[in-house]
């Protein structure tokens, strides 16, 4: 039974290649739009709070709250407020992505060795310079780790949108009657692939960033 589903999935991939590609593009569009909006909100806030060493409670409760919001509930509320479509799903995903980005950014900047920050301050660097030249480079690995967690989580959760007519690879997963179990499995493999590719891209970015900052540090 399992083996035949596996075989079906690998037959489904070439026969429905253009469908999978189209749906994967929809999932990627939705996930990346949500991530971009979440970054715009959470990154400046996390950097600022971390730099000022304020808002520990906010950072901690953001992560608790973010974890506690079931995606099904958020997407349902999105539909109730905005109707079925791209933006209600994007809104739900933005809310989910903010938590890990905000918390990790906060702890990335807040956790930078205070001796390094004091030394920079003693050398006459302004607060902005301290943030961009000392705290950001040193905190970058943790910050990017948060982004990676958020990205993988958002891509996997974007499929839930398919249940409620949100399109994307979740659309195939929610319609076993049409595409068969092989199709469901094929779509799942593509989602995992998309998540892996994104995580790998962010890991590469992380390595490139740390190489660029290394001589200065």
């Amino acid at each position: 039974m399992v083996a035949s589903t596996f075989a079906d999935a690998f037959r489904f991939m070439p026969s429905h290649f253009s469908l999978l590609l189209e749906k994967a593009a929809q999932t990627a569009e939705l996930a990346f739009a949500a991530l971009a909006i979440a970054l715009l909100i959470a990154l400046p806030l996390g950097l600022w709070l971390g730099h000022r060493h304020r808002g520990l409670l906010l950072a901690l409760s953001a992560s608790s709250l973010g974890r506690s919001l079931p995606s099904v509930v958020l997407i349902g509320l999105g539909i109730a407020i905005l109707g079925v479509g791209f933006w209600n799903n994007a809104m739900a995903l933005v809310v989910l992505a903010i938590a890990p980005i905000l918390t990790n950014t906060y702890f990335a900047v807040e956790g930078v060795d205070s001796d390094a920050v004091e030394a920079a301050r003693g050398m006459g660097l302004t607060e902005t310079q301290i943030l961009t030249r000392v705290e950001l480079p040193l905190g970058l690995p943790l910050l990017l780790a948060g982004l990676r967690i958020a990205a993988v989580f958002v891509i996997a959760t974007a499929t839930i949108a398919g249940i409620f007519g949100g399109g994307g690879l979740g659309d195939i997963m929610a319609r076993q009657v049409t595409y068969g179990l092989g199709g469901v499995f094929a779509a799942a493999i593509w989602v995992a692939g998309l998540a892996l590719l994104t995580a790998a891209a962010l890991a590469l970015a992380q390595r490139a960033a740390s190489r660029r900052t290394a001589p200065r540090a």
């Binding site: 399992v2 499929t159 179990l181």
Partner: peptide, 18 residues
């Protein structure tokens, strides 16, 4: 890790035949 990456929507259905 691999188990975690299978979307829940798919995993629930994949287990139904079992």
């Amino acid at each position: 890790d691999f188990l975690y990456m299978i979307p829940s929507l798919a995993l629930f259905q994949l287990l139904v035949p079992l």
